[in-house]
């Protein structure tokens, strides 16, 4: 540890600019009648996704004999959807989110997330609004829109929706991942590897780029398209090598939601990961009725990295984790 570790990892000038960007974002939503909410960071349940690792801690309740486990949220999604079910209408939140096992050029275990929901919008209408916000903050051109299938085919000469496991292994071999491909039997893992290493670096270089219609197997909490059951109504926004935002035309079917959670836990179990308690309050809310809506989560720190041409997340947050 150097003696300079007390110092912020971002410059004071960047931190001032950061404050101005947050003001602009709040103004953007105020003008559109989307109101700001504040939901808990510490909850009794958390995400079940096998690729997300929540921090957990013990709550010693003063009136009960046993401590209970609480989880720091990886995103405010569940609580915000409960507000939507309770009739909130359009809402947004700027909050800290926490993800264990994530650190790197674009990752800090705690980071600032902007998440918003638009009842009555589908993912296409939401894309237009995201685009307007990005143009306002970055002063960039209007984003382009491509489908996952088209852009994957264009860069890797392979159809990601119809490729077999054997096809993807061959492709991974050709790109130098022979060892990894030899033991990998999950199509999505190979798709994610190839997409992140050989498609992402080429898209959204001059203007932001929305990728739409992800494979149904990577739907997360998005609706499956009624026009094409092979794809989900999920979008991702990329700009200059950075993955900026992930949005869904939200799944509103409670039974389907529960099935996905249970499937996640089976995957966790098969990988030797701890199974996660299913958020019963969230499920009850979805069963009560989530209005048709679209929602998106956007990484504020990454947006600032682009705004100030910083190459590391450390340069836009006051104290990155090793100094925290």
């Amino acid at each position: 540890m150097g003696t300079d570790n007390w110092r912020p990892s971002a410059s004071i000038e960047v931190l001032k600019q950061r404050a101005l960007v947050l003001q602009k974002i709040r103004h953007f939503f105020a003008e559109r009648d989307v109101f700001e909410v504040d939901t808990p960071a510490l909850c009794h349940a958390t995400v079940t996704d096998e690729h997300l690792h929540s921090f957990s801690t013990q709550f010693n309740h003063p009136f009960t004999p046993h401590p209970c486990t609480l989880y720091l949220q990886t995103s405010p999604e569940f609580a915000m959807k409960r507000l939507l079910c309770a009739g909130s209408g359009a809402i947004y939140q700027i909050c800290k989110s926490f993800r264990n096992e994530e650190t790197g050029q674009f990752h800090n275990p705690e980071f600032t997330m902007l998440e918003w929901y638009r009842p009555g919008f589908n993912h296409l209408q939401l894309m237009t609004e995201i685009d307007e916000l990005i143009q306002l903050i970055l002063g960039c051109d209007k984003a382009e829109r491509v489908t996952y299938q088209d852009i994957f085919k264009q860069h890797l000469q392979c159809d990601p929706l119809t490729a077999t496991l054997a096809d993807l292994k061959t492709l991974a071999n050709r790109y130098g991942y022979a060892e990894l491909a030899a033991t990998e039997n999950n199509k999505d893992t190979l798709l994610m590897l190839l997409f992140s290493q050989h498609v992402e670096p080429h898209i959204g270089q001059n203007r932001p780029c929305f990728v739409m219609d992800f494979p149904a197997s990577q739907a997360a909490l998005a609706k499956i398209s009624s026009a094409n059951p092979l794809v989900a109504e999920r979008i991702e926004l990329y700009f200059q090598g950075t993955e900026l935002a992930n949005g869904f035309h939200e799944l509103t079917d409670g039974a389907e939601q529960l099935r996905r959670f249970e499937e996640d836990n089976i995957k966790r179990q098969s990988k030797g990961l701890e199974m996660m308690p299913i958020d019963q309050n969230f499920l009850a809310a979805i069963n009560f009725g989530l209005p048709a809506c679209a929602g998106v989560a956007l990484g504020i720190d990454r947006l600032l990295m682009l705004a100030f041409s910083c190459s590391k997340i450390d340069q836009v947050i006051a104290f990155e984790n090793s100094r925290a």
Partner: peptide, 28 residues
């Protein structure tokens, strides 16, 4: 280098020096 798609599997792209041969290689 920590690589993680928005929703999905994380990877590590590492640059490794083999200490005997001195060769530097990349692996994922």
């Amino acid at each position: 280098e920590f690589v993680k798609p928005g929703k999905g599997q994380a990877f590590s792209r590492v640059k490794i020096r083999k200490l005997i041969s001195g060769k530097v290689i990349e692996k994922t």
